[in-house]
Structure formats: C-alpha cells, structure tokens
C-alpha cells in the first residue's frame, strides 16, 4: 500500500504515557477536518486504535496529539486532505520519533480533584434544562430522548443496579445523531461527573463503585457504536477526558464560570457538547441528593501537572 510520510510538527502536546504515534507503524486516514484529523491503526478491527491530531482550538483529546501551531496543523490537514478520496494510503509517522523532548509537552488528562460547588451544579443543570427545552435546530435526530436517560443511568450506577444499568446502556450506546452518537456522549458525561465528584462531593469509594458498575456493563456493548465513540468511551473508562471536557468540569468549581462553559459546550459539534454536559450535570445532581455528600474541599494543586 502506498504511504504518505508526514513531516513532524515543530511542537506537540500529548497525554502522559506512550507517545501516541509510536503505538503503530502505519495509520489509515479516517477523517481530515478543519480542527481534527482522525487516524486509525488497523482497519476493520473493532479494537483498532485511533489517534486524533487536533488543532490548538480543538485542544488535546485522549490518545491524541495536539498541534498547537496553526501553521503546522494547516500543513498536516492540507497534506492529508489532498489524499482523501484517493486510493487507500498508509500514513507514516516515522519522522515524528525525532521530535525533541523539549518540543513535547505532556498533559495529564485525568480529572480532579475539583472543589465542585453545589450552587454551580444547580446553575449548570438549570442552563442545560433550558437548552433541552427544544430540539436542536436542524438536528437529523432529536438527541433529547437519550439525554433524558442520563439521570436514570446515574441513579442506577450509584445504586449498582446492574440490570437497570444494562437496560439503559442498551438504549444509549450508539444511539442518536452525530459521529459520536449522542447516547455515547451522555455516557462519557456521566463518567466525567462521577470523576469530578470523587473526593469532593462524595467519598471516592462511592464514585469508584458506580463507575466500575458502569464499566462492567459498558465494555461488552462497545462494538455497537462507531470507532470514534468507542475510543472516547474507552478513554473515559480509563479516566481520560479531552481538554474541553476538563474545562467544562472545572467550571463547576465556580458558578461565575458556568454560563461560559455551557456556551462553549454548545459549540462542540452539532449536539455533542450539550449531550455530554447533560450527562455530567445529571451525575452530579444525583450525587448532591445523597445524604452523604460532602461540603466542597480545596483541591491539591499538585495533583494535576502539565509539562
């Protein structure tokens, strides 16, 4: 198969762990977008690994590479975009192994701990309720029925009601509009909400039990959704979230930041941002109703590091 060799960007940001480009020798082009390029290591395998090369505006996503220089990203998009639609090509990233360590910034994509404030959650929930008042204009499929399952899923997970979790996940995984179907975004949002609350609103053991219960029922269903959604769900189960998810969750420590966070979520894809935010708000709202929820605590600033 012919190959296209991609020159290395000047600077990159990557998640902590192995360099994403080093996990495979050859990549296939899945999509070339204005702010994201999706590559796949493997072909039809449901477990094929994806790597998203994203622009500064999109931010780093789990298992991806953020190319913060717009010129660099534009050059990559043009190089790969010119090949899209032609015969299948391997994308060769061998040159990227020469990116100097000083040009690689690593980012911890785990959430937390965050001093989630109940009043921020209440505002977040109220704003999202308003968003859900009407179907998104022009949406190919109304995402609100799957968003409505976010609350029941959170409740079932916190109660470790496995049968109910399974039933709800079957109605969420791979369901809804978008290349990451809305139901999958809702699930990622619920997991993000649980992780945000861990050690802040409730004891970490509470959320760990809930996410374990979700994970056990979710993994067997991953083949029912798209590769990109599968990638996001797998990352969320491992506690990894894209930077834009992290920014949304971080706003829950400050009510003043919540309106901007909802506005930003409105801009992710056609419905994905609000789908995901609805999942997060539902999980947090359920946690706040628990008698054992705690007063906000101050997070340890050393916990999350970037280099």
């Amino acid at each position: 198969m012919p190959s296209v060799h991609l020159a290395a960007p000047q600077r990159v940001r990557v998640p902590t762990g192995p360099r994403p480009w080093a996990v495979a020798r050859a990549w296939c082009i899945v999509h070339v977008g204005q702010s994201a390029i999706i590559l796949s290591a493997g072909s039809d395998d449901a477990a094929a690994r994806l790597m998203a090369l994203t622009s500064r505006r999109r931010g780093l996503v789990a298992g991806g590479v953020c190319v913060p220089d717009d010129d660099d990203f534009g050059a990559l998009a043009r190089r790969l975009g010119a090949t899209t639609g032609s015969a299948a090509l391997d994308v060769n990233l061998d040159a990227w192994s020469a990116i100097p360590a000083a040009a690689i910034a690593t980012v911890d994509l785990q959430i937390g701990p965050i001093a989630v404030r109940p009043e921020a959650v209440e505002l977040f929930t109220a704003l999202l309720r308003a968003e859900n008042g009407a179907a998104p204009a022009g949406a190919a499929m109304d995402p609100r029925p799957v968003r409505a399952l976010a609350g029941p899923l959170s409740r079932a997970a916190l109660a470790r009601d496995d049968r109910r979790i399974a039933r709800l996940l079957s109605r969420l995984v791979g369901v809804g509009p978008g290349a990451t179907p809305a139901g999958d975004d809702v699930i990622v949002g619920v997991l993000a909400g649980l992780d945000a609350a861990a050690g802040s609103l409730v004891d970490e053991a509470v959320t760990r039990v809930a996410r374990d219960a979700l994970g056990a029922r979710l993994r067997p269903l991953l083949a029912r959704t798209t590769a990109i959604a599968r990638h996001d769900l797998t990352a969320a189960l491992a506690g990894q979230y894209a930077e834009h998810v992290q920014r949304t969750v971080a706003a829950l420590a400050d009510p003043a930041a919540v309106p901007a966070a909802v506005a930003a979520a409105r801009g992710w894809g056609a419905t994905s941002g609000i789908d995901l935010a609805t999942g997060t708000s539902s999980a947090l709202a359920r946690l706040l109703r628990r008698p054992d929820h705690q007063a906000p605590s101050t997070p340890d600033p050393e916990h999350r590091r970037s280099a």
Binding site: G178, A179, T226, A270
Partner: peptide, 14 residues
C-alpha cells in the same frame, strides 16, 4: 466507513 463531523451531517440532513 465514512466519517463526517456532526455539524456536516446535520447540515446535510437539513
């Protein structure tokens, strides 16, 4: 195996 971002799909259906 065709991926298009959700905004494009929405515009197309509309």
């Amino acid at each position: 195996r065709l991926y298009r971002d959700s905004v494009a799909l929405m515009a197309l259906a509309s």
